[in-house]
Design a protein around this nucleic acid. Sequence first.
DNA 1: CGGTATCCCCCGCGATACTG
DNA 2: CAGTATCGCGGGGGATACCG
Lengths: 241, 241
Amino acid sequence: MAAHKGYGQFCPVAKAAEIVAERWTPLVLRELILGSRHFNELRRGVPLMSSALLSQRLRELEYAGIVERRAGGGNSTEYHLSEAGLELRPIIEALGVWGARWTRSRLTSEDYDPSLLMWDIRRNIDVTRLPRERRTVIEIFLQGAEAAFRSWWLVVEEGEVDLCLKDPGYEVDLRLSAELKAMVEVWMGRQSMEAAVRAGKLRFEGKQTLAASFRKSLKLSPFARVASRESLAPAASGGLA
Amino acid sequence: MAAHKGYGQFCPVAKAAEIVAERWTPLVLRELILGSRHFNELRRGVPLMSSALLSQRLRELEYAGIVERRAGGGNSTEYHLSEAGLELRPIIEALGVWGARWTRSRLTSEDYDPSLLMWDIRRNIDVTRLPRERRTVIEIFLQGAEAAFRSWWLVVEEGEVDLCLKDPGYEVDLRLSAELKAMVEVWMGRQSMEAAVRAGKLRFEGKQTLAASFRKSLKLSPFARVASRESLAPAASGGLA
DNA sequence: CGGTATCCCCCGCGATACTG
DNA sequence: CAGTATCGCGGGGGATACCG
């Protein structure tokens, strides 16, 4: 006769946990916080979540007053955080900071998801640092990823970045070949890109000026500046950018 | 082939959520933060959680480096938050503040757990405001609670507070008769004790001086000063005590 | 007190397919 | 693009009993 979903407690921590600490929900909130608005955009941030479950969670979040559904142009729908939802932002961010400090040793090989990495990279490219007047195509080859997720193309054109898993057919201006794990380490700020290049884990092929631009255009993970506390490193703690 | 327990993401939010957003875990952390140290003490804070599951969660938290198990005197065990665990405190507190602001309308009748209420009250009594040199017995009768959890006795003696569900047999110095829901409202700071008394939801029987002392001795919920944002009340927002 | 051990139910959620 | 529909299983966790 115990509660199936709830905790049966009036405590605000319990009532909040019933909503926010549900499976997948913190990740959906993270995506909304990072600016994802459309269903399939959200899906790319949680590739292992089934669309049925994402749909269900979004409805639950809407019912809880955290998410607002708005009609976009055409048949599209937009999901936005409500005022209550925006107030969860510092909590999700703090959870991420805590994770960056204390969960490093729990990373398993399963966690190195190339889709998530590329999606993260895509949305963190500062297009203003890349050529504007012409199309730029960057191919990224991730060694160690499973075959279907090994080759990616970033197509930068008119201030937009497109991410493809299939060769779009354009001429490639820059090619980056990287070990998946090393690329994640770089993205997480645990190794500098320069060090990874020196160690032979990353290799750029193409115009060096474009390679330099790309390196500058790539902002790292929002948690890249948070120092892990698990190792015995000097560990100067950083805040969120 | 999806992850059974994990999310398959290197993102620190995901790795943290794998631990912290697990079912019951936020409530166990809340109990540890509030100072519970022993297994059965923790259980009283999460009465609906099975002991097997609490044991399992504590082991998981220990493995995650959040909880440290220490041998107490005799055959007792003590659970303490590690440094990593202490850093979760602001997150759990923020979750509770958010819950106090935004989940009021989600309270169901199932959530009015008299055991939790009495356990909360017990640990928030300021004994220095009650008689010191003699035993004081306060009976609390909760109308609307199920029969087995309707009558409670607080025995204050030598600076210790004992909570009993069975009549300890001592002479009762003060009797408080209250509607369960009203008592929770008071505890949550949503209604003043004076207003509840005036509305006839609370009634003290016994020495008025002792009643006054008891009222002063009872600190409210840590979230009692957080104003709900759901109603259209003026809502001056407060911080945590 | 401080947990284990065991059984078993049930539903959350993963997988797959399909629609407007 | 934005979801629904359906099915089946796995294991999380509730219930209960027991031990050192």
